[in-house]
C-alpha cells in the first residue's frame, strides 16, 4: 500500500489551519464575552501567548503513566475527529481520510477523548478532578443520545454513513440542507451541540466558580498546553462536523470558515444569555426536549 504523501501533507496543513483558527476564535470568544460584560478584554492573540508559556514551563511533575496519557488521548480524540472528516466537498486533497463509515468513527472519537481524560484525571488524584470527570462523563453520555439519534436520522435520510455522501446530498441551495429538510433532527443536534461545546448552560464540568476547573485541576505546563491545543482543534472540528451534517458542507475554505464560524458562535451566544445548569438539571434536560425532537426527526424520514 502506498501512502499518498501529498494528501498527508494537505491533512497536516489543514490541521495547522484549524489549530490557528481555533485559537483565534477562542480569543475572539473571550473578547466578545468581555465586551458583553462592558470590559475591554484580553487581546485576541492571548491564547497563543498562554500556549507558549505553558509549553515553556520549566518544571513538571507527574502522577503516573495515565497522567501522561490523559492529554494525549484527548488530543488523539480531537485530531481523530479532524482526520476522518471531509473539509471541502469535491476536493480530493481536502477531504482528509473520510471513508464510507466515517460518521461512526467520528462519534467514537468524540467519546474517546473524554474517556482518556477521565483516566488521566483519576490518576492525578485530586478530588475535584473526580467530581468534574464524573459530571462530564454523565453529561456527555446524555448529550450523545439525542446527537446520535439525529445523526442516524440524517444517515437514514441519505442512505449512507459517509459524510461525503451526506454532504453531496445537501448540495443545490439552502433548501436542500438537512436543517431545512429535516428540521427536527437538526434542532435536536444543535441543542446537543450546546452540550458538546461545554458552553455556559452546560459548562458545570469545568466552571471555575463551581468546582475549581474540574478535570484538568492537576494538569499544568505542557499537559495543559496539549489540552489547550486540543480544545482549539476539537471545538472547530465539531463545528465543521455540524456544518457537514446539517448545513450543506462547504465547497471552498471561505464558505467553510464562514459557516463554521456561525455554528461556533451559536453556543457562545446561548451561553452568554443563559445561566448555568446544575448537572442534575442538565441531564434531564438533554433527555427531554432534544431526545423527543430527535425521535420525531427519525420518524420524519
Amino acid at each position: 500500500m502506498s501512502i499518498d504523501w501529498i494528501k498527508l501533507l494537505f491533512t497536516l496543513l489543514g490541521l495547522f489551519i484549524v489549530l490557528n483558527y481555533g485559537l483565534l476564535q477562542y480569543g475572539l470568544i473571550r473578547r466578545i464575552t468581555a465586551r458583553i460584560g462592558k470590559r475591554i478584554g484580553m487581546p485576541v492573540y492571548q491564547p497563543y501567548i498562554d500556549l507558549v508559556k505553558n509549553y515553556a514551563m520549566r518544571s513538571q511533575i507527574t502522577h503516573g503513566v495515565m497522567f501522561y496519557l490523559g492529554p494525549v488521548f484527548r488530543l488523539v480524540g480531537g485530531v481523530g475527529i479532524f482526520m476522518f472528516m471531509p473539509l471541502i466537498y469535491g476536493s480530493y486533497y481536502w477531504s482528509n481520510y473520510s471513508f464510507a463509515g466515517d460518521v461512526i468513527l467520528i462519534m467514537y472519537f468524540m467519546f474517546f477523548g473524554m474517556l482518556g481524560m477521565a483516566l488521566g484525571a483519576s490518576e492525578g488524584g485530586h478530588p475535584y478532578s473526580f467530581i468534574g470527570i464524573s459530571r462530564g462523563l454523565s453529561q456527555f453520555t446524555t448529550v450523545e443520545v439525542p446527537f446520535t439519534l439525529a445523526v442516524i436520522a440524517v444517515a437514514v435520510q441519505h442512505h449512507s454513513f459517509s459524510l461525503t455522501e451526506i454532504v453531496a446530498g445537501q448540495q443545490g441551495g439552502i433548501m436542500h440542507w438537512n436543517i431545512m429538510t429535516n428540521p427536527f433532527a437538526g434542532i435536536a443536534a444543535m441543542l446537543a451541540f450546546l452540550g458538546m461545546m461545554m458552553a455556559s448552560p452546560f459548562n458545570v464540568v469545568q466552571a471555575p466558580q463551581e468546582i475549581p476547573i474540574g478535570p484538568p485541576t492537576e494538569y499544568h505546563g505542557t499537559y495543559l498546553g496539549l489540552l489547550q491545543t486540543n480544545r482549539a482543534i476539537l471545538y472547530v472540528s465539531e463545528s465543521i462536523l455540524m456544518v457537514n451534517l446539517f448545513f450543506g458542507g462547504a465547497t471552498n475554505w471561505v464558505e467553510l470558515i464562514v459557516k463554521s464560524f456561525c455554528v461556533f458562535f451559536w453556543p457562545v451566544f446561548v451561553g452568554l444569555v443563559f445561566p448555568r445548569f446544575r448537572i442534575d438539571q442538565s441531564i434531564p434536560w438533554f433527555l427531554k426536549i432534544p431526545l423527543i425532537l430527535s425521535i420525531i426527526g427519525i420518524f420524519m424520514v
Binding site: R30, K38, R39, I40, G41, P43, P208, P212, I213, E218
Partner: peptide, 18 residues
C-alpha cells in the same frame, strides 16, 4: 469593567498547578 486586568494578560487560575 473598571480596572479589567485581562487587558494585561492577567487571569485567575483556581489551582496552584497552573
Amino acid at each position: 469593567p473598571r480596572f479589567d486586568a485581562y487587558r494585561f494578560g492577567v487571569q485567575m487560575r483556581p489551582t496552584p498547578r497552573q
